[in-house]
């Protein structure tokens, strides 16, 4: 289980870092508010995962964004990218958990998928959904 939890934790850490960059480039205050709420949700998931780790974790390495974020379009693109990544990192946790822990993992995956859909709509990306969130396309 620790391997899957560690991967989910790494994805949550990456998302928290990315939203710091995303927020700077979003022009509308409503979207900035949404980005801040998303960042806080990822912080909460990170804290939950830290509590589930058997061993103390090493501090996360520096992050490299997959592409430069220079404007609204690239900020939304990064938000979609990190939420897809978070959903993909949580899916394997479903198979190694049960009951309440599995439901938490499913909620984390679902929330990430819903945020990805919301960012896709804001970015006018169509379709805004995918058949199997959490599975690499």
């Amino acid at each position: 289980m620790n391997e899957q939890v560690a991967a989910a934790l790494a994805a949550e850490e990456a998302a928290i870092y990315a939203y710091g960059i995303i927020g700077v480039e979003l022009p509308e205050s409503a979207q900035v508010t949404e980005a801040r709420a998303a960042e806080q949700a990822h912080r909460d998931r990170r804290d939950y995962l830290v509590g589930k780790m058997d061993q103390p974790r090493t501090s996360p390495a520096g992050y490299r964004m997959p592409f430069p974020v220079t404007d609204r379009g690239t900020a939304l693109k990064l938000a979609i990218h990190v939420e897809d990544g978070v959903a993909q990192a949580w899916r394997p946790v479903l198979a190694v958990t049960q009951d309440a822990d599995r439901m938490t993992a499913l909620a984390a995956m679902t929330d990430a998928a819903v945020r990805a859909t919301r960012w896709r709509r804001l970015a006018a990306v169509s379709p805004a959904t995918m058949a199997f969130p959490g599975w690499a396309e």
Binding site: A87, R91, P92, L94, A95, V96, D99, R102, M103, A105, L106, M109, T110, A113, V114, A116, T117, R118, R121, A128, T129, M130, A131, F132, P133, G134, W135
Partner: peptide, 24 residues
């Protein structure tokens, strides 16, 4: 929640997809 480990990923993904549809 009730699924064995080998089905949890697929059914969970379907649940998440239905949530994204409601959002869309």
């Amino acid at each position: 929640r009730a699924a064995p480990a080998d089905r949890a990923g697929l059914v969970g993904s379907i649940a998440a997809c239905r949530a994204t549809h409601a959002e869309a």
